[in-house]
Simulated scan of single mutants.
Amino acid sequence: MNTNFRAAVNRQGRRIAIAGIGAVATVGIAAMPAQAASWTSSITGGAPGFESHRWSDDGASNNIQFTGCRDDYQDKTVGVTLRKDVTGPDPEYSTAQYTACFGGGTSSGTWKSKGSGDFYFAVNYQYNGVHVWVTKVGVYF
């Protein structure tokens, strides 16, 4: 074989090897399991019983933070109840009373693991007539 042909074959082989490694890396990334992720949002005029969107976790504790709260009756407290989305009545866990968020601070509640599943929180669950606005809602798990 002449040296030019050999060099061309080696270059072609390297290109194929690099393309193959890139394909394996891409498949490896795509095959990674999806991980639960924390999220942030806000609440505008949340009526009693307002429900957040659902999130799935694998049994971690849940921390829910509110920053910048106000309500329409100047009660300066908002009840946050963790709930689990299941078939049939959704179980509810303890209700945290958030007050620091009304003074410009952040209110926070942490619920220990309730097993894996889909969760959400309800605001002022079973209260009458109090709407709430929250500038920043953070859910961490």
Results as ranks from 00 to 15, higher is better:
83 R>K: 15
17 A>L: 15
62 N>L: 03
41 S>N: 12
20 G>C: 00
58 D>H: 13
10 N>V: 11
34 A>E: 10
17 A>N: 12
79 G>D: 09
67 T>V: 03
12 Q>W: 00
8 A>G: 04
16 I>R: 15
57 D>H: 08
50 F>P: 00
35 Q>L: 12
57 D>S: 11
44 T>I: 08
39 W>R: 04
19 A>I: 05
28 G>Y: 00
75 D>Y: 11
61 S>E: 15
14 R>N: 13
32 M>I: 05
82 L>E: 09
84 K>S: 06
66 F>T: 03
97 Q>Y: 10
23 A>H: 02
8 A>T: 04
69 C>E: 04
21 I>Q: 04
15 R>T: 07
82 L>N: 09
68 G>W: 01
81 T>G: 11
16 I>N: 09
89 P>T: 15
80 V>I: 06
44 T>C: 04
39 W>M: 04
98 Y>M: 09
37 A>V: 07
44 T>D: 10
63 N>S: 15
53 H>Q: 12
99 T>W: 00
33 P>Q: 02
32 M>F: 14
79 G>Y: 01
56 S>F: 13
95 T>S: 11
51 E>R: 14
25 A>L: 02
94 S>Q: 15
21 I>C: 02
67 T>N: 12
50 F>D: 04
65 Q>H: 04
53 H>N: 09
64 I>H: 07
52 S>D: 00
76 K>P: 07
34 A>C: 09
60 A>P: 04
70 R>T: 15
38 S>N: 03
74 Q>T: 11
10 N>G: 03
46 G>L: 07
55 W>C: 01
88 G>Q: 12
50 F>R: 00
16 I>W: 06
71 D>I: 05
85 D>W: 12
33 P>Y: 00
46 G>P: 05
97 Q>K: 13
62 N>E: 15
78 V>P: 09
16 I>D: 10
9 V>A: 02
42 S>I: 00
36 A>Q: 13
56 S>R: 11
81 T>Q: 14
62 N>K: 13
45 G>P: 06
89 P>S: 15
90 D>N: 10
48 P>A: 05
51 E>C: 09
52 S>W: 01
15 R>A: 09
26 T>W: 04
31 A>N: 14
60 A>R: 12
24 V>W: 02
28 G>W: 01
81 T>L: 04
42 S>K: 05
76 K>A: 10
35 Q>W: 12
84 K>C: 07
66 F>G: 06
62 N>Y: 07
48 P>C: 05
63 N>P: 03
97 Q>G: 10
9 V>T: 00
76 K>W: 06
97 Q>E: 13
84 K>H: 06
22 G>D: 01
52 S>V: 01
42 S>W: 04
25 A>V: 03
57 D>G: 07
46 G>D: 00
43 I>E: 01
63 N>L: 15
43 I>G: 02
25 A>P: 03
16 I>F: 10
32 M>A: 15
9 V>N: 02
84 K>G: 06
85 D>A: 09
8 A>M: 02
49 G>M: 01
62 N>Q: 15
69 C>F: 06
16 I>M: 11
89 P>R: 13
95 T>G: 08
